[in-house]
């Protein structure tokens, strides 16, 4: 196992530590790096311009997460309610698109949404004669792309606890007089929180640091944190600031993961309560 650990240390830990260190240096006048300690880069992150991009990224990632979780949970629920022998097949086909190239899945949305794309064609076919609607290069297009790309994972994550759910729990709840909605809200939903949390964290973390989707579906000027980091390294040539942005991204990711661990802990506590209640 030693060679693998050396590899991970040399090509992940050390480079990441380097980026962390880089974040505390100053940008040279001609774009290089000046080795004097400074906190300026982190200060700049909170500059209204850049803080705004962080908030916008969080908003977009949050919206995409919410939509993906609602659709993904509904799909997972429907799969878990299907006849047993169909379930693996349905699940397989729900996850299959996830295994195709990310760029290509995103490109498919350019084909759908561009001004002469399929949606415009459909509208025309239904008798629409006005200007083609501008759907591509909007925030909505970015959100649609993110939801589309990560939905299969949410379905997978939500299906796991739903399929393990003991049907007797729901029956007991109904027998004791709870309505279908109450049963769902008080019995099924709490028991499946770990799946929801895992799916949500996945979508949020991958969305907030996303670079490809905003670049392709949001258009040239559309910026999320990922694009900002990209610019600092490849066009603006301000590596220390880019490094500080990347570290903020990691910090956000760690916070989200901690929140997930907390939610999972709580949910497992509640699950024990719930199953204990059903036994008694």
């Amino acid at each position: 196992m030693a060679p693998a650990l050396v590899w991970l240390t040399a090509l992940m830990v050390v480079p990441c530590a380097l980026v962390l260190a880089l974040a505390f240096f100053r940008r040279g006048i001609y774009g290089g790096i000046e080795y004097t300690f400074t906190l300026e880069n982190f200060g700049l992150v909170f500059d209204p311009l850049y803080a705004g991009i962080f908030l916008k990224s969080a908003r977009i990632a949050g919206t995409a997460t919410l939509i993906a979780v609602v659709i993904g949970y509904a799909a997972a629920y429907a799969i878990s309610a299907a006849p047993c022998r169909l379930q693996p097949v349905l699940l397989f086909f729900a996850v299959l698109p996830f295994w195709s190239n990310y760029l290509i899945r995103t490109y498919a949305w350019i084909v759908l949404l561009n001004r002469e794309g399929l949606i415009t064609q459909l509208l025309r076919w239904f008798g629409y004669t006005g200007e083609p609607p501008s759907m591509l290069y909007t925030e909505g297009a970015v959100i649609a792309g993110l939801v589309y790309n990560y939905l299969p994972f949410v379905i997978l994550a939500c299906y796991a606890p739903l399929s393990r759910l003991n049907p007797e729990l729901a029956e007991a709840s109904r027998d004791l007089g709870a309505s279908a909605i109450t049963t769902f809200r008080r019995v099924i939903l709490p028991l499946t929180v770990p799946g929801i949390a895992a799916g949500a964290v996945f979508v949020f973390v991958l969305s907030i640091g996303n670079f490809v989707t905003p670049a392709l579906l949001g258009g040239g000027r559309f910026q999320m944190i990922g694009n900002l980091v990209y610019d600092q390294f490849l066009t603006a040539n301000d590596w220390p600031f880019g490094a500080a942005l990347a570290m903020m991204l990691i910090a956000i990711m760690l916070l989200v993961l901690m929140a997930q661990a907390l939610a999972a802990d709580r949910a497992s506590g509640r699950a024990i309560e719930a199953s204990g209640g059903a036994d008694g």
Binding site: M12, F211, W239, A243
Partner: peptide, 19 residues
């Protein structure tokens, strides 16, 4: 250490390796 490469944002690992 083993889990990190699977969850670290691509863009972060990308700039780290570039640097």
């Amino acid at each position: 250490l083993i889990f990190a490469p699977m969850i670290i944002p691509d863009i972060v690992l990308a700039i780290a390796l570039l640097s």
